[in-house]
Measured scan of single mutants.
Amino acid sequence: VYKEIAITNGCINRMSKEELRAKLSEFKLETRGVKDVLKKRLKNYYKKQK
């Protein structure tokens, strides 16, 4: 499980701001904020899904 999260986090870290926004809107999450906030939001979402 932790390895999956680590791989997902690595992918998220390599995403551009536009990619992050697209992914967040896909999951109907808030898309406003600076890049670091968007990354954190997406990581938290994936963590809750596990």
Rank of each mutant, 00 (worst) to 15 (best):
V1F: 11
V1N: 15
Y2A: 14
Y2L: 13
K3Q: 13
K3E: 14
K3L: 07
E4A: 11
E4N: 13
E4Q: 12
E4H: 10
E4V: 10
I5P: 14
I5F: 12
A6K: 14
A6L: 12
A6R: 11
I7H: 10
I7W: 08
I7G: 11
T8C: 08
N9T: 11
G10R: 08
G10P: 08
G10Y: 08
G10F: 07
C11V: 14
I12V: 10
N13E: 06
N13L: 01
N13W: 01
N13C: 02
R14F: 01
R14T: 08
R14W: 01
R14S: 11
R14Q: 12
M15R: 03
M15A: 03
S16E: 03
S16H: 12
S16P: 08
S16A: 06
S16T: 14
S16M: 00
K17D: 03
K17W: 02
K17V: 10
K17F: 04
K17A: 09
K17I: 07
E18H: 13
E18K: 15
E18D: 13
E18M: 14
E19G: 06
E19I: 03
E19D: 11
E19R: 06
L20S: 05
L20Q: 01
L20E: 02
L20I: 10
R21D: 02
R21A: 05
A22M: 13
A22H: 13
A22Y: 09
A22K: 15
K23E: 05
K23H: 10
K23A: 12
K23I: 09
K23R: 12
K23W: 08
L24F: 04
L24A: 03
L24S: 05
S25H: 12
S25R: 14
S25F: 11
S25N: 13
S25C: 11
S25Y: 11
E26F: 10
E26P: 00
E26H: 08
F27L: 15
F27D: 04
K28I: 02
K28D: 10
K28L: 03
L29Y: 02
L29D: 02
E30H: 03
E30G: 05
E30C: 10
T31L: 04
T31G: 02
T31E: 07
R32I: 04
R32K: 09
R32V: 05
R32W: 05
R32S: 07
R32Y: 05
G33L: 00
G33W: 02
G33I: 00
V34Q: 08
V34K: 15
V34R: 15
V34Y: 08
V34L: 09
V34T: 15
V34F: 08
V34P: 06
K35Y: 02
K35H: 03
K35M: 03
K35Q: 03
K35G: 02
D36P: 10
D36I: 07
V37N: 07
V37T: 14
V37D: 08
V37Q: 10
V37A: 13
V37W: 03
V37I: 08
L38A: 01
L38R: 01
L38E: 01
K39L: 04
K40I: 02
K40E: 06
K40C: 03
R41S: 04
K43N: 06
K43V: 04
N44E: 09
Y45W: 13
Y45A: 06
Y46I: 15
Y46E: 03
Y46Q: 10
Y46T: 11
K47S: 07
K47D: 04
K47Y: 05
K47P: 01
K47C: 05
Q49G: 07
Q49H: 11
K50Y: 10
K50S: 11
K50H: 10
